[in-house]
């Protein structure tokens, strides 16, 4: 109850009037959904690692592919279902923006010729401005919408949700208040997200989507690693670096925004996400 009363009432964007008991129950259901989503993702990962086929000479294992697809997508859908209906409109309208930024900024950064993917800039930006739940929902949803143009993104929805969630947690913990801490948070996020996404690449696609990453995986395979081990090691090389850069870019972007814009988000004001004082507002 006390937690509810701490939330600053954004004008007209509250979750709607309801009895105290009703909102408490709805919040418990939401927590259960979030928990079920996280458990589904974690259980799928552990199951896949424990039961990975010892011999893949007979071709890619359909069994592992189905389990990976089912478990990870179920987790992503549960996370969306938990977060989406309670997000305020001001956050909701940011989600399409995040998706567009993921795609467009990814392409723009690609024009610099650097060997990274940078396809999570929008997700991390929303997570920093609107919190972990919004970040997770944005990551998963943007994978779903992106899959309309590139269906291979769809299975990675759970990894994208994890990135958004961890970015939101880092922002809440104040890691974006110091510029040098943001890449560190990105590095840790990249380790976790890379490890979780590796079974998808290994079992659903049988490899990685890019030639550069494929070459790194080849090197580990040449040393005799299993496919999952090789792809996990490749992810541990590429992803932390990639996410560290993405977090740094987002930190630059957030501080480049006018205070009036960034401090309009209740999450930014409540958890003092950014260094410095906000503009003088009646709520602050």
């Amino acid at each position: 109850m006390s937690q509810q009363s701490l939330i600053l009432p954004a004008t007209g964007t509250g979750p709607g009037a309801g009895s105290a008991a009703g909102t408490a129950k709805a919040r418990r259901n939401r927590r259960l959904l979030e928990l079920a989503g996280a458990v589904s993702i974690a259980a799928t990962y552990i199951f896949l690692v424990l039961t990975q086929p010892a011999d893949i000479a007979n071709g890619p294992a359909s069994f592992s592919a189905l389990v990976a697809l089912g478990g990870f997508l179920l987790g992503a859908v549960l996370l969306i279902a938990a977060a989406l209906p309670v997000l305020p409109t001001s956050t909701l309208v940011l989600m399409p923006v995040a998706l567009v930024l993921n795609v467009v900024l990814g392409q723009l950064m690609g024009s610099t010729g650097l060997p990274f993917y940078f396809d999570a800039i929008g997700t991390v930006l929303i997570a920093v401005l609107a919190g972990p739940a919004a970040g997770a929902a944005t990551g998963a949803l943007s994978s779903i919408v992106w899959s309309f143009f590139n269906p291979t993104v769809l299975p990675f929805a759970a990894g994208a949700a994890l990135i958004g969630f961890l970015a939101g947690l880092a922002a809440r913990g104040g890691l974006f208040r110091r510029f040098y801490l943001a890449p560190v948070a990105g590095f840790v996020t990249g380790i976790l997200a890379g490890v979780v996404s590796a079974p998808i690449a290994a079992f659903v696609f049988g490899g990685t989507a890019g030639l550069g990453t494929g070459a790194v995986v080849s090197a580990f395979r040449a040393m005799g690693d299993t496919l999952l081990a090789a792809i996990t090691k490749q992810a541990l090389i590429s992803d932390p670096m990639d996410k560290a850069i993405v977090f740094a870019i987002v930190a630059l972007l957030v501080y480049a925004l006018p205070r009036r814009t960034s401090f309009q988000f209740p999450f930014v004001r409540r958890f003092r996400v950014l260094a410095g004082k906000g503009p003088a507002t009646p709520e602050a």
Partner: peptide
């Protein structure tokens, strides 16, 4: 890239704020 990115992000976020108000005025969050 920075010179192109900042106006793009700023414009999109600014616009989405206006859109949120317009949607709320029409009962989107109800």
């Amino acid at each position: 890239v920075r010179l192109q990115m900042v106006p793009l992000v700023l414009g999109l976020i600014e616009e989405s704020g206006n859109r949120a108000q317009a949607l709320d005025a029409r009962g989107f969050g109800a």
